[in-house]
Computed example of a mutant assay.
Amino acid sequence: MSRYQKMSLVSFQKQFSTEEACHDHLFKLKWADGYSCEKCGHNTYFETKTRKHNLYECKKCRYQATVTVGTVMEKTI
């Protein structure tokens, strides 16, 4: 059982009270050791803030990703 399944609704709402807090948490989950391009493994990126989400583009191969690409939450925002 993960720590989030044990978390009360109030605790969850406090920890993830903003979209930014949710985004930061998902970034850390996806790239725990820092950003790494899913296509070429390069570790630097350009960040673009779009209307709906932050977009990360690899500086080497230009592959674009979000924190939800490749997860069950892909295409939900």
Rank of each mutant, 00 (worst) to 15 (best):
1 M>G: 13
1 M>S: 14
1 M>C: 11
2 S>P: 10
2 S>F: 02
2 S>E: 10
3 R>D: 12
4 Y>T: 07
4 Y>A: 03
5 Q>T: 13
6 K>I: 07
7 M>H: 04
10 V>G: 08
10 V>R: 11
10 V>W: 08
13 Q>M: 14
13 Q>V: 11
15 Q>D: 14
19 E>F: 09
19 E>K: 06
20 E>K: 12
20 E>Y: 05
20 E>L: 14
21 A>V: 01
23 H>A: 03
23 H>D: 05
23 H>K: 04
24 D>A: 04
24 D>P: 01
25 H>K: 14
25 H>E: 15
27 F>A: 12
28 K>R: 14
28 K>G: 08
30 K>D: 09
30 K>M: 08
32 A>V: 12
32 A>E: 15
32 A>T: 15
33 D>T: 10
33 D>A: 09
33 D>Y: 05
34 G>T: 08
35 Y>L: 12
35 Y>E: 11
35 Y>G: 06
35 Y>C: 09
36 S>H: 15
37 C>T: 11
37 C>H: 09
40 C>D: 11
40 C>P: 03
40 C>V: 07
40 C>H: 07
41 G>I: 11
41 G>N: 07
41 G>Y: 13
41 G>V: 07
42 H>P: 01
44 T>A: 11
44 T>P: 00
44 T>E: 13
44 T>F: 03
45 Y>Q: 12
46 F>G: 06
47 E>S: 05
48 T>P: 00
48 T>Y: 15
48 T>I: 08
48 T>V: 06
49 K>P: 00
49 K>E: 15
49 K>R: 14
50 T>Y: 02
52 K>L: 06
52 K>H: 05
52 K>W: 07
52 K>R: 12
52 K>A: 07
52 K>F: 05
53 H>K: 14
55 L>E: 14
55 L>F: 04
56 Y>P: 02
57 E>A: 10
58 C>E: 03
58 C>W: 04
59 K>W: 02
62 R>K: 15
63 Y>N: 12
63 Y>D: 06
63 Y>E: 13
64 Q>F: 00
65 A>W: 03
66 T>N: 02
67 V>K: 01
67 V>G: 01
68 T>D: 00
68 T>R: 02
69 V>K: 05
70 G>S: 03
71 T>C: 06
72 V>F: 10
72 V>M: 09
72 V>D: 10
72 V>P: 02
72 V>W: 08
73 M>F: 15
73 M>C: 11
73 M>S: 11
74 E>T: 06
75 K>Y: 07
75 K>W: 05
76 T>K: 14
76 T>G: 05
77 I>P: 03
77 I>A: 10
